[in-house]
């Protein structure tokens, strides 16, 4: 009897450990998947450039257009990055440039060049969830969110748009974010985000990101057509990337005040 009880105890302990262990592995997996995904989405290659056309479409179907060239250089994978954005359209912001030094552990440094008065000014960067140029994308949706800012939970696997995806729940650790959590669908093959559902409290769907077209450029899978839709207002933003190039040898000098005042002709056409 004693012996049996003893064996039972051991069995229970092992089962318990196993269960705990599985839970632990899955949490780690979720984090690893998001890390790989983050690298694939925001840190592909060492640098890159693209021309971006952003269509802001309201419920009535009225279209507003933002067209810009974006240059990116990674200082370290998953860490510090530099961004340079030159606006081609609309006409009232033509020639405006925007530069960001993004850090993993502190607020971005951001500068804006206002062509009408030839002024470069530092601008505040508290607006993690503020809209980027009036679109449905936030600044964070454009340049990524630090992995440590969320807890990651593995929910399972699902097929989305014909692709096998991991489903991860990402919950922000801090409050004051415009959503409660994101349900992220990560492609098992490319680690690109195929779909991202933003939920408010009480599991209420608020906005949805979809990667609508994926192309491989120089070996790097790239979502060249993307949409962010606000489910509540019907407003949506569709983005297309063209002239996608990687590893073009962008130097630190390009990410400077000089470029903001006089965009480098080699990269900005």
């Amino acid at each position: 009897m004693h012996y049996l009880q003893y064996r039972l105890l051991i069995l229970m302990a092992v089962v318990g450990l196993l269960t705990l262990n599985t839970g632990f592995v899955q949490a780690a997996d979720a984090g690893q998947i998001m890390e790989k995904s983050n690298n694939a989405v925001y840190y592909a290659a060492d640098d890159g450039s693209s021309r971006v056309e952003m269509k802001l479409i309201n419920k009535r179907g009225d279209i507003r257009l933002r067209e810009f060239t974006i240059l990116r250089k990674d200082v370290s994978d998953g860490g510090e990055q530099k961004y340079f954005i030159y606006f081609h359209k609309p006409n009232d912001v033509r020639n405006m440039t925007f530069m960001v030094n993004k850090y993993a552990d502190k607020n971005d440094d951001r500068w804006l060049y206002i062509p009408a008065i030839h002024m470069v000014k530092r601008i505040s960067a508290n607006d993690k969830t503020s809209s980027f140029v009036g679109s449905d994308f936030s600044y964070e949706d454009i340049s990524g969110r630090a992995l440590d800012d969320d807890t990651h939970e593995f929910l399972g696997e699902e097929t989305v748009a014909g692709r096998q995806c991991y489903v991860i729940k990402n919950t922000p650790k801090e409050s004051g974010i415009s959503y409660a959590y994101r349900k992220t669908f990560v492609d098992k093959e490319s680690y690109l985000i195929i779909k991202d559902e933003y939920y408010k409290a009480a599991d209420k769907l608020y906005k949805v990101f979809t990667a609508d077209k994926i192309e491989t450029h120089q070996g790097y899978p790239t979502a060249v057509k993307r949409t962010m839709k606000n489910v509540k207002t019907g407003h949506h933003t569709s983005v297309s990337f063209s002239e996608v190039k990687y590893n073009i040898g962008l130097t630190d000098k390009i990410f400077s005040e000089r470029s903001m005042r006089r965009p480098p002709k080699k990269w900005i056409k």
């Binding site: 502190k106 607020n107 440094d109 530092r122 601008i123 505040s124 960067a125 508290n126």
Partner: peptide, 11 residues
């Protein structure tokens, strides 16, 4: 002098 401070910009 300009710098980031308390999630804003000090000038």
């Amino acid at each position: 002098l300009q710098r980031n401070l308390l999630s804003g910009v000090l000038s």
